[in-house]
């Protein structure tokens, strides 16, 4: 069964139509990569999924539950607590990391989980135990990211690649159903992209459900189970990566790919 179903999403900013009738679905444990030229609406799509933007029309369903249905007067004024609960189905890793500078690597991973735990009964009964469990969990994630000796460092003491891996651990901490990446390596020096792509590849091997917007074509081709090529706010072509990359049906896809292959 599909974890994520997106139907007929459209979004305009003023007069520009940024997303036009986007529909897609994603199976549990699969990786979807989204490619497309600058300005084609990839970031906006991820922001809609994470409720940072509200689409003008469309439906978003996760595990069969309708999280968003637009246009819908009822949804327009969602209570903040509702919205937060829905957001937690998704995680988002930003191009520019957006780590919290005044927290250590470990602190960044712990913060949100601890704040969420504060509303639980368990927290009232035994704070120390909950804290300990959350910290252990966070440490485990940082180890998984290869950062066991960087936990006490602040973001400004870390390289870009290390920052992005902390950001991935932070997004994983809340156990999202679908983890989204918006060009996770675009802000990195070329020699640092490898370490970040490697941990994402590991996540794919462990069947993490992911949506990855990327300009790393080889990575998209090798890691993804499904690829979408976006152009001017539309899904221009989608399917199996081997098919789309080696044998694109659309002229626009072909042109886009050949531009990338030249580089």
């Amino acid at each position: 069964m599909a974890v994520l179903e997106v139907e007929h999403i459209s979004k305009r900013f003023g007069r520009t139509e940024v997303l036009r009738d986007i529909s897609l679905s994603l199976e549990k444990g699969k990786t979807l990569s989204i490619i497309g030229s600058s300005g084609s609406g990839k970031t906006t799509l991820l922001r809609c999924l994470n409720f940072l933007e509200t689409p003008d029309t469309g439906v978003i369903r996760v595990n069969g539950e309708t999280l968003l249905e637009m246009p819908d007067a009822k949804n327009k004024r969602q209570r903040e607590s509702e919205l937060r609960r829905k957001r937690l189905h998704f995680g988002l890793v930003f191009q520019s990391f957006n780590l919290f500078p005044q927290y250590t690597a470990l602190g960044n991973v712990i913060l949100a989980e601890e704040l969420l735990a504060k509303d639980t009964e368990e927290w009232k009964q035994d704070k120390a135990a909950v804290r300990k469990r959350i910290e252990e969990h966070a440490r485990g994630l940082l180890v998984q990211m290869g950062l066991e000796d960087r936990m006490k460092n602040y973001p400004h003491q870390l390289s870009g690649g290390q920052c992005q891996r902390v950001a991935i651990a932070r997004a994983l901490a809340l156990g999202p159903d679908i983890l989204c990446f918006d060009e996770p390596t675009s802000a990195l020096d070329p020699e640092l992209t490898g370490e970040v792509l490697r941990v994402i590849r590991d996540l794919a091997d462990q069947n993490t459900t992911m949506i990855i917007v990327t300009h790393e074509m080889a990575f998209a081709r090798d890691v993804a189970d499904q690829v979408i090529f976006m152009d001017e706010g539309c899904i221009c072509e989608q399917g199996d990566p081997k098919e789309v990359f080696c044998n694109p049906k659309e002229e626009r896809t072909r042109r886009f790919l050949s531009r990338f292959m030249e580089e």
Partner: peptide, 23 residues
């Protein structure tokens, strides 16, 4: 403060009040 700080907090399920005081 860059907008990304608020967005990162929101995506992590934090309330706006928490984001203000903790971030």
């Amino acid at each position: 403060i860059p907008a990304g700080q608020e967005e990162a907090g929101l995506v992590l399920g934090m309330t706006r009040t928490q984001i203000f005081f903790r971030v």
